[in-house]
């Protein structure tokens, strides 16, 4: 039996403080891509009590996702957006989740993300990452974008950091490791990068612009 809304909210306020939790409650975050980065980022934000999550991915859960993504084996074959919405509802039933199983393109970015305060790039392919970051920064003159580059392989987790590239663009990762070089993807190291992104998003919601 899940605790009621007031009980869960009081627990969040106890951990985070009332003023900061009020900012988390009101925040709208778009998570673009629900793989190793996005599914873990979304869960971290839901656990922190971020009030509104916009989860976007056209893909379905595959067996090869289970080493690093927040899905259960029994969810293989389901749309990631819907599966993650269900998993978040089990963790924090009072987080408002909008799940969309659509492909993000240069053409639909300007409409798709218009209701979100912060845009999180959590794609897998480098070309898709560049497309989303470039078109989101161009379409929305005020929204910060938190992206990821370089988390493949098993080099030290200490190489992963958060860099503020420009006024509104943050990039988390080691910025050099490419999955195309056959490095593989390991849940633990992808999680470090996802945690950097989630932390930066919480800092932005709280009003801190520095990494």
């Amino acid at each position: 039996m899940a605790p009621d809304r007031e009980t869960l909210h009081a627990a969040l306020v106890e951990r985070h403080g009332a003023a900061r939790q009020a900012k988390f409650d009101a925040a709208h975050v778009a998570v673009c891509g629900l793989g190793g980065l996005g599914s873990n980022i979304a869960v971290a934000l839901a656990r922190a009590g971020v009030g509104h999550l916009h989860l976007i991915d056209f893909d379905r859960v595959e067996p090869s996702n289970l080493n690093r993504q927040q899905y259960a084996a029994a969810q293989v074959g389901l749309a990631k957006a819907e599966a993650l919405k269900a998993n978040i509802a089990a963790i924090n039933p009072y987080c408002e989740v909008t799940a969309e199983a659509v492909r993000i393109t240069e053409e639909n970015v300007a409409v798709l993300l218009s209701g979100d305060d912060i845009i999180c790039e959590a794609f897998d392919r480098a070309e898709e990452k560049a497309m989303l970051v470039s078109s989101a920064l161009a379409a929305y003159p005020d929204k910060p974008v938190v992206a990821a580059s370089g988390m493949a392989g098993l080099e030290s987790a200490n190489r992963i950091s958060t860099v503020r590239v420009s006024k509104r663009l943050y990039v988390c990762g080691d910025r050099t490791a490419d999955v195309a070089d056959g490095l593989g993807l390991y849940g633990a190291r992808v999680l470090v990068c996802a945690a950097h992104q989630a932390t930066m998003i919480l800092r932005l919601i709280d009003g801190s612009e520095e990494p």
Partner: peptide
């Protein structure tokens, strides 16, 4: 000029 070159993986 700032250029970010993205690496694949996620």
């Amino acid at each position: 000029v700032e250029i970010v070159c993205f690496m694949g993986g996620g």
